[in-house]
Design a protein around this nucleic acid. Structure first.
Length: 184
DNA sequence: CAATAGATCATCT
DNA sequence: GATGATCTATTGC
């Protein structure tokens, strides 16, 4: 994966990430659900209006990981993706597990069916062992990375985002139609 | 099955 | 000291 793959409009990257593979060591899975967060003109984005130390990464190098702790106990995994000069990230909401199922179950301490192991932002990070340590990691290469989609992943659906209080109506959520691993 | 309360902490004001 | 891009367990019908 090259830098310029991530350095184009955030929405476009959010769509292109569907069908790509998320890898962390021997654990891997297909990305089936994403959301775009734009630094400009998006009230629900952390970086909107306030450009601070934490949100500085929104304007940083494409392909870096932005890991955020929400509600005190859940980590959320994002990838920096934006057109040159703009700022934005893509939230990875759900993954269809491919390999390392037993490790995922062990980390999550539950015996869920495969499609549920990573069907949600916080579940995903639990299953993949993602924590704040990985904030700022380069996902273009290395042990913790994203690999491009191999074949046509299927029909892509677009709709409103989930679990936010502002700008709910913006259709910046993308997922694969009919995929059982997509969160509700 | 649908609704809801509670957990818990890094970051910013 | 307020806030939040969630999940799970527990209620009540």
């Amino acid at each position: 994966m090259r830098v310029d793959w991530f350095e184009r409009p955030t929405e476009e990257v959010a769509r292109a990430l569907l069908g790509a593979t998320l890898v962390h060591g021997r654990v891997s899975g297909t990305i089936v659900e994403t959301e775009a967060y734009l630094a400009e003109d998006d009230p629900s984005c952390h970086a909107c209006g306030r450009r601070t130390r934490r949100t500085e990464i929104f304007w940083g190098e494409g392909g870096l990981a932005y890991v955020y702790l929400c509600y005190g106990l859940h980590w959320c995994l994002n990838v920096v993706a934006h057109a040159p000069g703009a700022g934005g990230v893509v939230l990875l909401r759900a993954v269809m597990p491919i390999a390392g199922l037993e490790l995922m179950r062990k980390r999550r301490r539950r015996d869920d069916p495969a499609v549920r192991l990573a069907s949600g932002p916080a579940r995903l990070t639990q299953a993949f062992g993602v924590t704040g340590r990985l904030n700022g990691a380069d996902m273009k290469t290395g042990d913790f990375r994203i690999e491009p989609a191999g074949r046509n992943p299927g029909r892509i659906v677009r709709g409103p985002r989930i679990g936010i209080s502002k700008a709910k109506e913006l259709p910046l959520r993308f997922w694969l139609a009919g995929n059982g691993a997509v969160s509700r």
